[in-house]
Amino acid sequence: MAGFKLRRSLLYVPGNMPSMLQNIPIFNCDSVIIDLEDAVPLSEKDAARHLVKRFLMNYTDRNKELLVRINPLDTKWGYEDLKVVLPAMPDGIRLPKADTPEIVERLDTLLTEFEEELEVEIGRFGILPSLESALGVINAVGIANSSERIFALAFGAEDYTASMEIERSRGGEELFNARTRVLWAAKAKGIQAVDTIFADVSDMEGLRAETELAKRLGYTGKCLVNPRQIEVVHDVFAPKQHEVEYALQVIEAIQRARQLGTGVIALGGKMVDAPVVKRAARVLRTAYAHGMVDTLIDEEAIHGAQ
């Protein structure tokens, strides 16, 4: 659990819009994905990557995770994107159309080369691969295991439905299998899973319903196209008050258990053991991010002293 990072909301910001870039510091999303791919017209690819570089270099008081969505590596812009942007130290790269493990491995190799050149720690730049085609979804397990840089798998429904030659519906029934497969791959690898965007920025109820579904399935976050969506998504991912209270009781119980020299204890007639503690710890970390509890629980409370 060390290095736990809350990623409920990953906001897309177009890389070619200075007025929007300058507002990145003010929004309270967990991550920002600065887009050099779909949002940027071909005529502005070059200008946008330099603008993003400048912005990142000037953004010294970083208050959120910064990812850059580069163009696919098989286009003529992908490599150049990395070359220009990486020296400005984003936290990671969102890799579009990560259809196969090989595509991710190629990015991994390039990132290692840049890290050596920039003399930064190997592994500093993370990877968030987008599984957004039938092929990508089928390969989810292989992709999840293709690089240690991968901290989460992202599902992209817009391109996925296009590759399936189907329409995306408001209820999202057609996405169910793909969503689940991406989740399995992520959970099996022990990494996070990030759900697709919800494109209608005026439909907050639709956004809420879709986010609730994603959370119920096991997704830990969602990509956003507008800052107005942050609040709803955070609200959905916020633990409920009774969950927080129960989690606090669990932690207190397990601490008592450890004093008694055991790893298992009963709480309200139910057994509290490692998986229950793990879930409680996750609830409390999220609750801390939402300001619902004042202190972060320390690792020793969860795992016991070595």
Binding site: N23, F27, N28, N226, P227, R228, E231
Partner: peptide, 11 residues
């Protein structure tokens, strides 16, 4: 307002 900056202030 629907301006995200305005909404952030309001929030």
């Amino acid at each position: 307002t629907t301006d995200p900056v305005g909404l952030q202030i309001a929030s």
